[in-house]
């Protein structure tokens, strides 16, 4: 059998690819196989390695972890490991403990720095201001600037009163279920 790619050398490497239930077979010579494997390394994106990556994070708590289930869509952590995809947006909260290190591994960060949906942006800004004030308060106390601290505390109180109750999807991320 000759190589499917160059058609010159005998095929010594046999490759089976299954994409969406469609199987294709490729018979390659050594030279073309080398090239193909280099391409595959490049294309073998993180998505495909996800399940494997996640496993590295917590090798021990096996059983308990695998049985962990998203209360909204019923996807288990075991399912996630198998298919490399989450079941719904609430899985992020259900598997937070394991997803955070995974996200860190993939992106080098777990803190979103991009845009927000317009509806959420408004409430988020208020919360951010509040967070900033709390940090300021802490610093003022540490520096023993109690007068300043008292001012900031009043600002926080005033802000908390006007605070629009956060949307449910945001709230969940502050309170572990």
């Amino acid at each position: 059998m000759l190589c499917d790619v160059c058609g010159k050398n005998p095929a010594t490497v046999h490759l089976t690819e299954i994409i969406d239930d469609q199987m294709t077979e490729l018979h390659l010579c050594e030279e073309c196989a080398k090239q193909k494997s280099m391409q595959m390394e490049q294309q073998f994106g993180l998505a495909d390695l996800l399940a494997g990556l996640a496993e590295f994070e917590k090798p021990i708590e096996e059983k308990e972890t695998l049985l962990l289930k998203c209360p909204n869509c019923k996807l288990t952590y075991k399912d996630f490991k198998k298919i490399g995809r989450l079941g719904c947006s609430e899985c992020y909260e259900a598997f937070r403990k394991y997803l955070s290190p995974l996200l860190k591994r993939i992106h080098g960060s777990t803190a979103h720095a991009g845009k927000m949906p317009v509806k959420i942006a408004k409430t988020a800004k208020k919360r951010l201001d509040l967070q900033e004030l709390r940090v300021k308060l802490q610093k003022a106390i540490e520096a023993e600037q109690f007068e300043e601290a008292a001012k900031i505390r009043d600002q926080i109180k005033a802000q908390e009163k006007t605070q629009v109750p956060p949307q449910p999807e945001e709230e969940k991320h502050d309170e572990p279920q």
């Binding site: 998505a47 992020y92 996200l103 777990t110 979103h112 720095a113 959420i120 919360r127 991320h173």
Partner: peptide, 18 residues
Amino acid sequence: AFSLDYGYLTACPTNTGT
């Protein structure tokens, strides 16, 4: 689907964030 810390939530964690 959006979280303040993770950003836009996607089926695959490789797309999460922006």
